[in-house]
Design a protein around this nucleic acid. Structure first.
Length: 585
RNA sequence: GGAUCUGUAGCUCAAUUGGAUAGAGCACUUGGCUUCGAACCAAGGGGUCGGGGGUUCGAGUCCCUCCAGAUCCGCCA
């Protein structure tokens, strides 16, 4: 066995090969290697259970044959046992753990190991995607934060990632915005806080249309003019978009969120006729109540619930642009996979979109990419209902971040009053924003979650402050030695882990590769969060149990090695989640 | 009415997608700093995994059926 990054894959390969040489029907044998409960070992292979069951064989006998056929060097490097109904357990020997830890000494080397996972795959990730002229509020944060983490993770694991912000910059709201801009604008307010004023204009215009039919007509007329290419309205439309994206950019910068493209809905305007034509040509779309719709007869609901691709007034809607977007991502970006992050309320829409796309592509002979609607639940207040301000409005994202930083500053000041204020401010920025982000990522995204300041800013539990504290504490050790954690001088001469605490930590470190594969395969960042939390906890126990800076150079070097690797994994993991890290707090 | 998601310790959440004795944090009880950062660590109590059936070597996880909550269901996205 080579001690490479992904030991589970090495074991899998060895077991497959052993299965063939042991006379098993190798093509049918699936080793099912996974990380094991530490009580049983580092890895376990469960595959013989299924194999034996299907053939009515004795699983333990099969397991014994398999183990006997494993190469000698593998058996030198770990203790292999058969347990229970036929589990094969692999416990790496200390020397093997050391051999794995030594070469994974910086982020580039980790990335080199991980990049095999998605090498050659192009992913288009559609996230954030706010509507023009509305301020970002808490409801937008999950798409942004989870999306950014997924992009970083996939990219680290070798994928070529295209980040696309699919802005809602076209559609019926522009009739109201343009009419309101012309009639209701307050120039002073507009220069003070442009987006705030646009939002006010929109709300006022919206209210006006409801009380006055003449205004509703005027609003519709503005929309028609825009869609027909009226120069004045087009210019206004551009201006509104510019205001909006300028305001979005501030928040994106604050959260370290980046895009390669901002191809909003309007980008697809000239690409819609092809969609109508191809859906009609392939017979997928039919006329119904004056609209062009797609039904899916094989589906219990979508056989009657239409996917409306053209409204009865002839206008397009988001189904049309989403189909055009799918095609553009396939043809222009050559996407192997497309990921869209929106809340779960749009699940029906994306299911219909995907069903339609599959049939359409099959009919036209287009190469079908994989598609994932990465959906997520809502953020709730303490009362269990969607989180709102006291006045009932959505909480603005900037205000939420401000409050997080403020609260973090109070905490840092309380815990580390000796630090200069400027440093406390900087720490508060990292801790506060990190806490909000991490709270979102650490939850299983499919559920709603309850937002609670005390919980997310706590130093106990699965929180950003706890992880950042572990990071700073390790930095502190190296600071004491005036050594860079990456400096080989600190860890030269390290021996294999010996004590229980050392072994436990070393084995926890070994879990990183499978966590990365699980996290990316499921597109669930909370898997990584849980791992980082456990790693930090294991480190804290190790740190309490074993003194690092002891006189014996071999013991000291091996403990420093564990510290350095823990630090590297924590910092790398947090960065993949989109958090900044600290050296002191 | 139909569909999707959710239901796990008093509270907030995990559980490597069918694996071994269901785990954390908060709260509660107790212990640990003249020694590398105690923003920490160690130990303890606390569970009909919403209820009931079923599938199999094995179920919190899959199937059926009830119960509860959230969301969606024709021209918003």
């Amino acid at each position: 066995m080579h001690v490479t990054f992904n030991l589970a894959a090495e074991l899998d390969a060895a077991l497959q090969s052993a299965a063939r040489s042991a006379g098993l029907e190798g093509n049918d044998f699936v080793s099912d290697v996974r990380t094991a409960d530490p009580r049983h070992g580092d890895f376990q292979a469960n595959g013989v259970l299924g194999y034996a069951k299907a053939r009515k064989l004795n699983p333990r006998a099969i397991a014994e044959q398999l183990v006997a056929a494993l190469p000698a060097d593998l058996r030198d490097q770990c203790d292999i046992t058969i347990a229970g109904p036929g589990f094969i357990n692999f416990a790496l020997k200390p020397a093997t753990l050391l051999a794995w830890l030594l070469p994974h000494d910086n982020q580039e080397h980790l990335k080199a190991g991980a990049s095999a996972f998605y090498s050659g795959q192009r992913y288009v990730v559609d996230f954030s995607s706010p509507n023009t002229a509305k301020q970002l509020h808490v409801g937008h944060i999950r798409s942004m934060v989870i999306g950014e983490a997924i992009c970083r993770l996939l990219s680290f694991c070798g994928a070529s990632v295209v980040r696309d912000n699919h802005i809602g910059d076209w559609g019926t709201q522009f009739g109201k915005l343009i009419w309101g801009y012309k009639q209701l604008r307050d120039d002073a307010a507009l220069s003070r806080d442009p987006l705030e004023e646009l939002e006010r204009i929109y709300k006022a215009a919206d209210a006006a249309t409801k009380s006055d039919a003449a205004i509703l007509d005027a609003v519709r007329a503005e929309l028609v003019k825009l869609q027909q290419g009226d120069a004045e309205n087009l210019q206004l439309w551009k201006k509104i978009i510019a205001i909006s994206s300028g305001a979005f950019r501030e928040t994106y910068e604050r959260l370290d969120i980046h895009f390669d493209h901002e191809l909003g809905e309007s980008f697809y305007n000239d690409k819609l006729p092809r969609i109508y034509a191809e859906l009609a040509e392939t017979g997928l779309a039919v006329e119904s109540q004056g609209a062009l719709v797609v039904f899916h007869p094989e589906h219990p609901r979508f056989k009657t619930q239409p996917f409306i691709v053209r409204k009865s007034d002839g206008a397009s809607n988001y189904a049309t642009t989403d189909l055009a977007t799918m095609l553009y991502r396939t043809e222009h970006f050559s996407a192997d996979a497309i990921i869209v992050l929106t809340d779960t309320r749009q699940a029906d829409h994306f299911e219909q979109l995907w069903l339609t796309t599959q049939k359409w592509y099959a009919a036209k002979g287009y190469q079908l990419p994989r598609f994932e609607h990465v959906s997520f639940g809502s953020i709730l207040g303490e009362d269990g209902k969607a989180i709102k301000t006291r006045s009932g409005d959505p909480i603005k994202l900037q205000a939420l971040l401000d409050e997080a930083v403020e609260r973090a500053f109070a905490l840092v000041t309380e815990k580390s009053p000796e630090l200069p204020e400027s440093e406390r401010r900087e720490i508060a920025g990292t801790v506060g924003i990190g806490a909000v982000r991490y709270a979102d990522l650490a939850q299983n995204r499919s559920s709603d979650y309850v937002f609670n300041w005390e919980k997310i800013l706590s130093f106990d539990g699965n929180t950003a402050p706890y992880l950042l504290y572990a990071v700073s504490r390790i930095h502190s050790i190296f600071r004491k030695l005036s050594l860079n954690p990456c400096d080989v001088a600190a860890t030269a001469g390290a021996t294999a882990p010996e004590t229980i605490a050392e072994m436990t930590l070393a084995r926890k470190l070994l879990g990183l590769p499978s966590v990365l594969t699980n996290t990316t395969a499921n597109l669930r960042p909370h898997f990584l969060c849980t791992y980082l939390f456990e790693l930090a906890g294991t480190f804290s126990s190790f740190y309490a149990a074993e003194k690092v800076l002891v006189d014996d150079p071999a013991i000291r070097a091996r403990r420093l090695l564990l510290c350095a690797r823990t630090l590297l994994f924590l910092e790398t993991g947090l960065q993949l989640l989109g958090l900044r890290t600290l050296t002191r707090m």
